[in-house]
Write a protein that binds this DNA or RNA. Structure first.
Lengths: 215, 215
DNA sequence: CTCCGTACTGTACATTAGTACACTATCGAC
DNA sequence: GTCGATAGTGTACTAATGTACAGTACGGAG
């Protein structure tokens, strides 16, 4: 591939640029127009040369059937994004108690993730950064990102994100006879018990469906 | 975009797959053939519907002029690396020792993830499913997905994925005077010691950069 | 000098591909 | 029931596109 002529390299760059601009490869006439060629054959000849020299691959005589063979390993296929439709997940920062959970004020940044991460659920999933070691025995550490399905209902034993007295916390959820027990996964920490007769507010924000940690 | 019909979503997924496979968008006839339509008009109608609903954009009547319009801002999707564009990560299954690590035979599925997950590294990151509890104290459990940057070099103390005697293993990496120590993060397990004079093969496949767990 | 590879022009043709139109059928809403 | 949206079949026409062939020109290798 290093044995391309200057002109051929220009053509290759043009193809790359075109792909970047449009999302699909150029035709011979696109190339010709791009260089001011008055003959499509000039473009065709260059494309043939590029193919012979292994810079590109061609899919038969299909229209726009030009595929770059780039990269250090000259792998055939450009890593074209997205097998499945990605889902957009807001990563929440400080959660203001008064606002709707997913209001813009709460969102720090937004991630695009594969539906794989959300278990196929397409919406109402948000992310949070874990603070503290209270769920360490569940494999959730300080600084981890947790993915949370927004729901007000949870099953006993699930890990939930709850708002208790204005603070968000991540704990195991156990509804019991007279109270709700939020159990840390850390033997040195005591559970939070919430009694309905308390004046404090309590609200389940969602159920944890995934954890991500940068190593 | 959530108001797509099931069939329309299938068509959109097909376009995505086609793009991924070929590097250029499908024609109406490609789509029709893919679904077994006996009329190109069926495909054209779906493409029109997708365009009307904003899932794709079309470049006039150019051949293969289909451009995906994904994401929250519905921007063009470009097949070329761009910051903030999702990255494609192969999830490896059983790793055959004889084959190149990222050869197709090893790949179970492919995930699209935000560069966030790979720390900005755009390539040579792959995924693995963890088997066993040897890294439990590092917060890596059986069944977790780990994201690995493919490299043959590691720093002491990093968590690596290595191939030892034909088996892949995930451990802390400590090069020592006369041997390499692969240290589990599990107090009940002994480290693996590898001596260069051993006949067994040893190879670092990569360094763990992230962990994901479905809860 | 000739020969060959590169770099084009110009014309023509066959195939590929987008679009239009007519028509059938199902399903849910009104 | 009627209407509209969805999901197709089938045919035909036109535009877009790849390719072939015949030239011109330049420059280096033999």
């Amino acid at each position: 591939m290093t044995d391309l002529t200057d002109r051929q390299r220009e053509v290759l760059t043009f193809i790359r640029h075109f792909l970047h601009e449009h999302g699909y490869p150029p035709t011979m006439r696109d190339i010709a127009a791009g260089f001011g060629f008055r003959s499509t054959n000039a473009a065709a000849a260059h494309v043939s040369a590029l193919e012979k020299k292994g810079a590109i691959r061609r899919d038969g005589s299909r229209s726009r059937g030009i595929v770059l063979c780039d990269g250090p390993n000259r792998s055939n296929i450009i890593p074209f994004p997205r097998m499945e439709e990605p889902v957009s997940i807001p990563i929440l920062g400080a959660i203001s108690a008064g606002l709707p959970l997913l209001s813009e004020e709460n969102v720090d940044e937004t991630l695009m993730v594969d539906p794989f991460f959300t278990g196929g659920r397409r919406d109402q999933v948000f992310g949070l950064v874990v603070s503290g070691e209270s769920m360490i025995d569940a494999g959730i550490k300080d600084g981890d990102y947790i993915f949370v399905r927004a729901t007000a209902e949870a099953q006993s034993g699930q890990i939930v994100v709850a708002m208790v007295d204005g603070e968000t916390t991540c704990k195991y959820y156990f509804p019991e006879r007279h109270h709700i027990r939020l159990q840390p996964a850390n033997s040195s920490m005591a559970p939070i018990l919430w009694y309905p007769e308390d004046a404090t507010d309590f609200q389940i924000l969602g159920v944890v469906i995934g954890v991500y940690r940068r190593v």
